[in-house]
Design a protein around this nucleic acid. Structure first.
Lengths: 339, 339
DNA sequence: CCGGGTTCTGTTAGCGATAACATCACGAGA
DNA sequence: TCTCGTGATGTTATCGCTAACAGAACCCGG
C-alpha cells in the first residue's frame, strides 16, 4: 500500500470523493432525502461500504441539536423492580431509534438525582426518565433544566412532570380484600421503608380496604424491602401467632423472609397464617408454599414512560402533564387459605 | 424583561462576554488549565453560574474525539447476574468520569451483538464492554471496528480481546468437592443451557472434581437458568431419590425450583438430598433450607472490566490482551449435610 | 534599562456533520 | 424561442467547543 494509508476512520468527504459527488449528496443519501438520482444513490452506497464508512453521530448531534439519546436515572438497578423497568425503557427506546444512557444511583437523594440530571443534560440527552421511587428523589424533578422533556416513573405527581406508575393503592387493596374475603378478621402489614412512594401507596390501599370493610387496622411492621428485614418481621409476627392470621407484605423478597421465619418457628403457611406479597418476582411461584402476590407489569411501565417522553420530545413543546397508571394484577397461589 | 430574552441555553461565548474575557479563557477555566489568573477564574465562575451555563459535551467530543462514554452490550438485564455486572460497570465507569450507554439484547446472537456494537461505534463511544455469556455472542467480538477498545465479561478468551470473568470451573469444583467431602458417593449436576460459557465452565469443574476423586460421573440434567426448569429437573431427580444424594445446581434460581419439587415429593433437604447452588442471589439465604452456594462477586467483575478497558483507552494503543479471573467464594448454609 | 523567558490571554482554524442557499440542466407552456 | 418551475447537485455557513499559535504583560538578571 502507498504512504496514504489512513488509520483515521473515513469521513463523509472521503465517501464523497470516492463516489465523485459532494459531501452534501452523501448526507442526502444517508438521510433518505428524496431528490437524489437512483444511480447516484447506489454509487454513494457502494462507496460507503467500500470504505466501511459509519457516520459520526456526535457531529450530527451538534448541528441538529438532537442526540437521539435518552437519559435514565435510577436507584440500584440490581433490584428486580428497577432492573425490569429500566429494561422495558431500554427496549422501548431502542425500538423508537433512541439510545439510552444510564446513571444508577447508590444512594438516592435530591442532590444525587440533581447531579445525575445535570450530567445527562451536559451530555446532550433529548429527554430524561427518572425512576424516582422516593419522595425526596422525586422532588429533584422540580428543578429540571428549563425545557428538558422528562417523565417520572413510580414518582410523585406534583404537576411538574408526567408520571407513569403501577397503581399501588389498588394493588394493596386487591391483596387485602382477598385476605378479608377468605374470612380473616383483619390483615397485618409489613411495609416498605418510609419515604418510598410505593410503600406509602401500599399502606394507603391496605388501610383503605380494612376501613371499607369496617375492620380494625392492626399495628404495622416496617422493613427495607430486603429478605432479611422480612425475616425479622416474621419472627415478631410468629410470636403473636394466635392473633395474626393474615399478613400483606409489601414485596415478595420480604415475604420470603417471613416464610423462612415462620418455617423456623413452626408456623404453618397458609394453615395458620396466610401471606400475600407484591411484585411477582420470577422466584415467587417456587417458594414453599408458592406465593400469592400482586404482579406489577414493569415492562409496560417502561414502555408507557417512553411513549410519553417521546411525544413530548417530538412535539417540541411543553405538553400538559399526564398521569398514567398501569393496573396491577392479582396472582393466586398457595400462600393464602380460608380462615 | 427586554426583547433579548433567549430561550436558547447559554454557550461559552455568552459566558465570555459577561465575564469580559475570551471564550478560550472560559474553556481554560472549565478544563482546569493552570495558566489562568485566580481573579479571572473567579470572574468566569461567577458568570457561569449567573447564566446557569453548562458545557456542551457533544461539541467537546467532536473536537477531542473522546465522548467519555462507554458502551455496554448485555443480554437480558433483568437477570440477577447481568444486572449486577452492569451495575458494577456503571458505578466504576462513573467513578472514572465516564458515562455508560446500554444496549440490552432480547436474543443474543452474533448478528445482534454486531449491530449493537455498530450503533455504539456510530454514537462515538470510547470503548465497549460486552457481557457475552454465550459462545455465539462472544464470537461477535472478532469483528469489532478496528481500533475500538473492548473487553468481554464472562466471555471467551480467543486472543482478540481481554476477558474478565469469575472462575466458573473453580466454583464448580468447590461445590462438588464440598459434597464429596461430606461423604456423598457422587454428585449429580443440573446444568445451564448449552452454548452458555458459564454453564460449560461449571460442567467442566464438576466433572474435574469427580474425576479427581475417582468417582463415577452420573448423568446430567439441563435447565435454562429459570426456577421452572429447576423444578422440572427436581421432579426427575426426586423419582430417583434412592440413587441421588447430592446435586450441584448451576444457579440459585434453578436450585429454588429443585427445592420446591423436592418439597412436593416429600424429599427432605438436606437429610435425603444435599443441594449446592451457584450465584448467591440475595434470596438464597432465606430459602428453606437456606442454600449452600457459590458466591460470584459481580461488582468486582464490573470494576475490573472497566479497569482493563480504561487502561486500553487511556494508553491509546493496543495493549496485550489479558485474562482476569475473579475468584468465587464458597458459602456454607443449610442445604447440605453429611451422608 | 534592556533582552528573553514566563505567564496570562486572545485569535484563528478546525472537528464532521446538516441547513440554507446557489447553481445548473431540463422540459413544459407562452 | 424564451421564460420559468422543478429536480439534482454543489457551495458556504454554522453548530459549540478545543488546539495551536500569536501577542501582551510581567519578571528576572546582567
Amino acid at each position: 500500500m502507498g504512504p496514504n494509508v489512513d488509520r483515521r476512520p473515513p469521513v463523509m468527504a472521503d465517501v464523497a470523493r470516492l463516489a465523485g459527488v459532494s459531501h452534501q449528496t452523501v448526507s442526502r443519501v444517508l438521510n433518505d432525502h428524496p431528490n437524489v438520482r437512483a444511480e447516484t444513490r447506489t454509487r454513494v452506497m457502494r462507496a460507503i461500504d467500500q470504505l466501511g464508512y459509519r457516520r459520526n453521530l456526535v457531529a450530527r448531534a451538534l448541528v441538529t441539536k438532537h442526540s437521539r439519546t435518552l437519559g435514565v436515572v435510577s436507584f440500584d438497578t440490581t433490584l428486580y423492580g428497577p432492573a425490569s423497568t429500566v429494561y422495558g425503557i431500554e427496549q422501548a427506546a431502542r425500538d423508537a431509534g433512541y439510545f439510552v444512557s444510564i446513571v444508577s444511583l447508590r444512594t438516592i437523594d435530591r442532590a444525587g438525582v440533581n447531579d445525575a440530571i445535570g450530567y445527562l443534560a451536559e451530555q446532550g440527552v433529548d429527554g430524561i426518565v427518572v425512576v424516582a421511587p422516593q419522595r425526596s428523589a422525586a422532588r429533584a424533578l422540580d428543578d429540571l433544566p428549563a425545557g428538558m422533556p422528562a417523565v417520572a416513573v413510580e414518582g410523585w405527581h406534583q404537576g411538574e412532570v408526567s408520571v407513569v406508575s403501577v397503581d399501588q393503592v389498588e394493588g394493596a387493596r386487591l391483596a387485602t380484600s382477598h385476605l378479608l374475603d377468605l374470612g380473616h378478621e383483619t390483615v397485618w402489614h409489613v411495609s416498605g421503608p418510609a419515604d418510598w412512594l410505593e410503600a406509602e401507596g401500599r399502606i394507603e390501599g391496605w388501610r383503605a380496604a380494612l376501613t371499607a370493610a369496617g375492620r380494625p387496622v392492626p399495628g404495622m411492621l416496617t422493613g427495607d424491602w430486603s429478605p432479611r428485614s422480612g425475616y425479622r418481621a416474621g419472627k415478631e409476627l410468629a410470636a403473636m401467632a394466635g392473633d395474626v392470621t393474615a399478613v400483606f407484605v409489601a414485596n415478595d423478597q420480604m415475604a420470603l423472609g417471613l416464610l423462612r421465619a415462620f418455617t423456623e418457628e413452626g408456623v404453618k403457611v397458609p394453615e395458620q397464617i396466610s401471606i400475600v406479597g407484591f411484585d411477582d418476582i420470577p422466584e415467587s411461584e417456587f417458594f414453599s408454599p408458592p406465593l400469592t402476590t400482586i404482579r406489577q407489569d414493569f415492562g409496560a411501565v417502561g414502555r408507557r414512560s417512553i411513549d410519553v417522553l417521546l411525544r413530548q420530545i417530538e412535539s417540541g413543546e411543553a405538553l400538559p402533564h399526564e398521569r398514567l397508571v398501569v393496573p396491577p394484577q392479582f396472582v393466586l397461589r398457595g400462600s393464602t387459605a380460608a380462615h
